[in-house]
């Protein structure tokens, strides 16, 4: 089990309203990712769910039980911290067994559970080391191991991969996804890396200044962002925004078009000059100064034989133009 419902949840630190009011339901077994810019309240929200902070208002239900004023110990959730928060004075084995010991499990039962978790996480060889003698990825796995042995109702992750290098991040990301497929337990995952969000999530929650901007599957958000904030936040490289006369032609205050949805054609509506071209091999990124519009980022597939100063003609792909009103909301 692991359904989490937030109703009208508020949080303020003194004068500052970090989360004005928020409603959200996380279904059992879902992999939910919170994304948003730094300082938007992702960690705060996660800590509210964990019980490490009190909500200033509203209620939090876990599996239908009101948990708003339960201490973290009683909520049956497990958390993996950005700094891993391993107990430095305990061996890996003791670290993983700690929650079991706290739950009063017999040493023999705990040992077999630790062995099982270590097997899943490939930690077998390190069980007698101290956290200080492990690499970043191994520490991360210990932290996850400590979380899974408890068989919690849900896992909470707060930017668990941000201290790892790029290559390790990719492999750990896959490991966590696989873990989710095996365990089928609810996972709530905070990140500001949108690649992590897109690849791992069943459901993404985009936060901005403590408010939910949009909730949906990764492709939902990609295809139909409800406002300019989500449109600009999801997708890499960022969506191009066009204002002025060109937007008015389409009856909108603002137009949005993703770099990958602009084609280089013989005779398109937009004419421009290439300002900067980045050739990555698999892709080519072009900055094009378009007459009457401004700079557009364009993504070409493969090796495109164009260079700075070349004149090009561009056309947006049909149906891939996003129209936004004056308030930034998407127009249907």
């Amino acid at each position: 089990m692991g359904q989490i419902t937030l109703r009208n949840v508020k949080k303020s630190f003194g004068e500052v309203d970090v989360i004005p009011s928020l409603d959200l339901t996380i279904e059992n077994g879902e992999f939910v990712v919170f994304v948003g810019p730094s300082g938007c309240g992702k960690s705060t929200l996660l800590r509210l769910i964990a019980g490490l902070e009190d909500a200033s208002g509203g209620s939090i239900e876990i599996d239908g039980v009101d948990a708003t004023s339960l201490p973290p110990t009683k909520r049956g959730l497990a958390m993996v911290f950005q700094s891993y928060a391993l107990y430095p004075h305990m061996s890996v084995r003791k670290n993983i067994a700690f929650p079991l010991k706290m739950a009063g499990m017999s040493a023999a039962d705990a040992a077999s559970k630790v062995e099982a978790a270590a097997k899943v996480l490939n930690l077998g060889d390190y069980l007698d080391r101290r956290p200080g003698q492990l690499s970043g990825g191994q520490r991360q796995r210990v932290a996850i191991g400590r979380a899974i042995v408890r068989e919690p109702a849900a896992f909470l992750f707060d930017e668990p991969l941000s201290n790892l290098d790029a290559a390790l991040r990719v492999s750990m990301r896959q490991e966590i996804s696989e873990l989710h497929q095996t365990l089928k337990t609810t996972m709530v995952y905070v990140t500001h890396d949108q690649v992590e969000a897109m690849t791992m999530a069943d459901k993404i929650v985009v936060l901005h200044a403590g408010r939910i901007e949009q909730v949906g599957s990764p492709l939902d958000l990609y295809r139909s962002p409800v406002n300019t904030f989500v449109a600009g936040f999801i997708g890499s490289p960022k969506m191009n925004f066009i204002e002025g006369a060109e937007a008015e032609k389409h009856n909108a205050a603002m137009l949005g078009v993703r770099p990958e949805h602009i084609d280089i054609v013989e005779d398109g509506p937009w004419q421009g000059t290439i300002g900067l071209s980045e050739h990555l091999g698999s892709d080519t990124f072009l900055k094009v100064l378009v007459d009457g519009i401004g700079t557009l980022n364009v993504r070409g597939t493969g090796e495109v034989g164009l260079h700075t100063g070349d004149k090009v003609s561009l056309a947006p792909q049909p149906g891939k133009l996003h129209r936004f009103g004056k308030d930034g909301k998407a127009l249907s």
Binding site: L52, S69, P71
Partner: peptide
């Protein structure tokens, strides 16, 4: 860090 419980 600070919940009502921990403050108490």
């Amino acid at each position: 860090m600070a919940t009502l419980n921990s403050r108490r």
